[in-house]
Amino acid sequence: MKLEYKVEGGDFTAAGFASSQIKKILKQLNIDPSVIKRVVIALYEAEVNIVAHAYRGVIKAHIESGGITLTLEDEGPGIPDVEMAMTPGFSTATKAVREMGFGAGMGLPNISENADSFNIETIVGKGTTLTIGIKFK
């Protein structure tokens, strides 16, 4: 099954909508709740990152019998130093982002913690693509 959602940068009210939809579908597919939690937590932090740090993006979810692959591709500033961005506590988030309960530099480390596979491709001035893989068993 393939799903696709658009995400707008700066739209904090809608942030989490795609994660919520994908959660509902995984529930219908009777995936283990603890696996669903790992999927949607990684996805939600990644979705919030598009809203917080990029201009716009597309979330693609590819669900197969063995697991899920999430691809989050955004048009945005890109990440100049991925290693630094992955460091717990590193954040360039604005006050508006912090007011929403994010912006503590914990998102990327927590995505990595929950994912079975995690990859970041980024081009400064163009955008960032995250690929997150989680196995169902």
Binding site: F12, A15, S19, S20, I36, K37, Y44, V48, G101
Partner: peptide, 15 residues
């Protein structure tokens, strides 16, 4: 003390 939509989303994602 966070009264916005993301606190509810966070609970939703956390089950």
């Amino acid at each position: 003390g966070l009264a916005n939509i993301q606190s509810i989303r966070t609970l939703e994602m956390s089950d």
